[in-house]
């Protein structure tokens, strides 16, 4: 849980933290690898939603450098397999995600990230 697809979709949402609030930095992460079903249509359809650079960085940080630095215009099977693995098969079980801007720490416990904000952090 906390797969890299999720990491790619979450930004710091503390009040007034609106710039440099993504991607959240991974800290002290414990990983698990679990096989997931491959679906090429899903991957192709979801690619436009991804922040590519952030995804490549996060993947490198957890030890996967299979993705090209820039999102390819033409996708082949091998690329899709690598993308599938990075997005869906790498799980962060423990650790934290830290906002690069306001330093808010979002802890991950048992695979569930706690994204709740404190009282002084909401609008």
């Amino acid at each position: 849980m906390v797969r890299l697809i999720t990491h790619n979709l979450l930004a710091c949402h503390v009040k007034r933290c609106t710039t440099n609030n993504f991607p959240l930095q991974l800290k002290d992460v414990q990983l698990a690898l679990r096989e997931a079903e491959f679906n090429a249509d899903f991957l192709r359809g979801f690619m436009p939603r991804l922040e590519w650079t952030a995804l490549v960085q996060a993947a490198c940080q957890v030890g996967d450098d299979s993705l090209p630095l820039e999102a390819p215009e033409m996708v082949d099977d091998e690329f899709l397999k690598n993308l599938h693995h990075v997005l869906l098969e790498i799980h962060i079980e423990e650790g934290a995600m830290v906002c690069p801007n306001c330093q808010h720490v979002y802890p991950i416990s048992n695979g569930i990230p706690n994204m709740l904000l404190a009282e002084n952090e909401i609008g």
Partner: peptide, 20 residues
Amino acid sequence: QRVIDLCTFDVTQNPWRCGE
């Protein structure tokens, strides 16, 4: 494997980076 992720947050203070 189809449950991608579960997150704790208040949906009125949600961390989704984008829509659609």
